[in-house]
């Protein structure tokens, strides 16, 4: 009788990469459902295209990479075995951060191919990418297609009978608010009813449900998204020099801040390693967003996130934890 021999530990946690990604997908479910309810079939089309094309991009890439070594059938099975749901998460997050415009069906397709193919797989696949693929995909689309600047408001609730032109004409609710246009109530912002914006980020309630799920499952440290949102809102209020509840609600509840802080900034691969470095990273991200929002007049979350992704390599060594029992005199070498 022969036994398995391996180095310790001989027992492992049931939590695996696949399980983590599945949990993120589950956490994104409320936002997806809310998006489809608010924006209708167009949202479903965008989400479907982005998720399917993201997964397809990874599979095709893996097939090409493996084709030369194995027979096609074996290569395909190996690809399926190794498929760890990360590209599904990327595709879904990207889809949720796009406006629900079915006529621009090519946008989620191209965005997903770019995010998974160029940003993730080209750098070596899962765990090796430098910047957040979903954020990079969104920025790519935003800079490439003018249609991405048009945000429809959901044809739902109190807004249904009113004049939609002012909302569909240009920017998100955040942009209108930042330019001093008449705004919606905090409750509308929270529920996403009548708010112009992207599919997943308008209904804050759904984002909040996802946040609670991720925190409870231990996927995301509960304090990290708060450390991004609070500085962003406070810094925004400071810049406006106005301290009202309505402004706080507008800064915190409009745009993609909440969605990005919960689902995009917390991406493991592109955030720092240690606890303290993560705290610093999130606070800096929040401040950057608060400042740039005022300067740009539009939502800048994905741009700020990409910028911060490049600082991780600087933050990590500076905020390395000091080993237990290492005295201060020896320094943090």
């Amino acid at each position: 009788m022969s036994y398995l021999v391996s180095p310790p530990p001989h027992i492992r946690t049931p939590m695996s990469t696949k399980r983590i990604m599945l949990d993120v997908l589950i956490a994104l479910l409320p936002a997806s459902i809310a998006g489809i309810v608010l924006f209708g079939w167009q949202a479903a089309v965008v989400l479907g295209i982005s998720v399917v094309s993201a997964a397809a991009t990874e599979l095709v890439w893996q097939l090409i990479a493996k084709k030369f070594r194995k027979r096609p059938k074996e290569a395909f099975l190996a690809c399926l075995r190794e498929f760890d749901f990360t590209s599904l998460v990327t595709g879904l997050i990207l889809g949720l951060s796009l406006p629900a415009l079915a006529e621009a069906w090519y946008a989620p397709l191209l965005g997903s191919v770019f995010a998974v193919g160029a940003v993730k797989m080209l750098f070596g696949g899962t765990g090796k990418n430098v910047v957040n693929p979903a954020a990079a995909g969104r920025v790519f689309l935003f800079l490439s297609f003018a249609v991405m600047m048009r945000y429809p408001a959901p044809n739902f609730g109190a807004i249904a009978s009113s004049d939609l032109s002012s909302l569909t004409a240009g920017a998100t609710q955040l942009a209108t608010a930042l330019q001093g246009e008449p705004t919606l109530s905090a409750l509308d912002l929270f529920l996403g009813t009548g708010v112009a914006g992207c599919i997943g980020e308008t209904c804050k309630l759904a984002v909040l449900v996802g946040y609670i799920y991720l925190s409870a499952r231990g996927i995301v440290k509960w304090y990290l998204p708060l450390l991004c949102v609070c500085p962003a809102v406070l810094f925004g209020m400071l810049l406006e020099w106005e301290f009202s509840f309505l402004l706080m609600a507008q800064l915190g509840l409009s745009g993609g801040l909440l969605f990005g802080a919960v689902f995009m900034a917390t991406d493991y691969v592109t955030s720092p390693k240690s606890r303290l470095a993560n705290i610093v990273y999130f606070v800096l991200l929040g401040l950057l967003i608060g400042g740039l929002r005022k300067a740009a007049g539009i939502e800048v979350f994905s741009f700020c996130l990409l910028l911060m992704n490049f600082t991780v390599f600087l933050i990590d060594p500076i905020f390395k934890p000091r080993p237990f029992g290492k005295t201060k005199k020896e320094g943090n070498k």
Binding site: I20, K128, Y268, V269, R275, P321, P323, F324
Partner: peptide, 19 residues
């Protein structure tokens, strides 16, 4: 083993505060 996803769990549980 699959690719490291940089989740930081190993550093968070390390009783010696290593990475």
């Amino acid at each position: 083993p699959t690719a490291c996803i940089n989740c930081g769990r190993c550093g968070n549980v390390c009783p010696m505060k290593l990475l």
